[in-house]
Design a protein around this nucleic acid. Structure first.
Ligand code: FES
Ligand code: FES
Lengths: 144, 144
DNA sequence: TTTATTTCGGATAAATTTATCCTTTTTATG
DNA sequence: CATAAAAAGGATAAATTTATCCGAAATAAA
């Protein structure tokens, strides 16, 4: 479904969000330890999230990654997925055609569009705030 | 969503099914020409489908690939997807945990299970017969 | 039985994704 | 300003997926 990079990106964003609520910046080292991911690879993914203005980075001593507190509730999972994996999953044809075309549908189109639209709606209606709350309350987990 | 191999496998199965209705066996060459896929790679995927008893192969002159006519309505898309991509997509955790565990859910679990279950239901309720009918009637397409 | 045809299967290569390492740049603080 | 801390970015490597090639095995038909 999602690439490894995207899985790490989602988990990393949640962890950064949780820490940002406490005005605490985190490093790739802390992040990868928390979400159980390779550190250098995770750092690369963070660069992509920074470029897409999802995560903010502060260089130098006492720096690290953070997310503006007031943005956490506005950031949708769809933004993270699109930033890392592109928009093929959210808009592409299920059987690999260049575009999903209603006028020239693939064999699976009628069945696939419902699934894809439900997935897209889920990703667009799920915010970092929502996911971070579940972690903080102990309902869900970032590793193991 | 699906791997390239799986996309080819689905399209190939549909094309074989259509031809099998006319008692016509098809070769990897014909298949890859029809579904616009690399021939040798497609042949490898067909071997996997044969091993999983989804497609039947006949060696030698006048041989080729076919599907028992009475089986076409029984073969579900989920069988093809599982044979080629495994069962991670249908049963795995959306954030990459080894297993999807209700007792120890990942952050996305609550939102993800609905999508994944809908996808699985769709794949389990979609038969090759259904897909082949749409192609034959000109509603949908296998290439371009 | 010989021949032509066709799938099977192994080896290999190309492309992409995943992952690591190391140097440069930036910046807060002493 | 000097220093240490931290992200940025380039080069490279490992793993996986995608793709190609070729000889072996099987089989129908002449
Ligand atoms: S054309 Fe394939 S999903 Fe729409
Ligand atoms: S634990 Fe991740 S989807 Fe269920």
């Amino acid at each position: 479904m999602f690439s490894k990079a995207c899985e790490y990106g989602i988990k990393a964003s949640i962890f950064i969000a949780i820490n940002s609520y406490n005005d605490n910046r985190v490093s790739p080292k802390e992040i990868s330890a928390e979400i159980n991911s390779p550190q250098a690879f995770t750092a690369k993914i963070l660069q992509a999230l920074v470029k897409h203005n999802i995560v903010n980075s502060v260089k130098g001593a006492y720096g690290g990654f953070e997310i503006n507190k007031e943005d956490i509730a506005k950031i949708k999972l769809s933004q993270i997925v699109t930033a890392i994996d592109g928009d093929q999953l959210l808009h592409g044809c299920g059987l690999g055609f260049k575009v999903c075309d209603e006028e020239h549908p693939c064999s699976l189109h009628d069945q696939f569009v419902f699934i894809r639209n439900d997935l897209r709606n889920m990703l667009e209606n799920t915010t970092l705030e929502l996911l971070a709350k579940d972690i903080k309350s102990g309902v869900s987990f970032l590793k193991l």
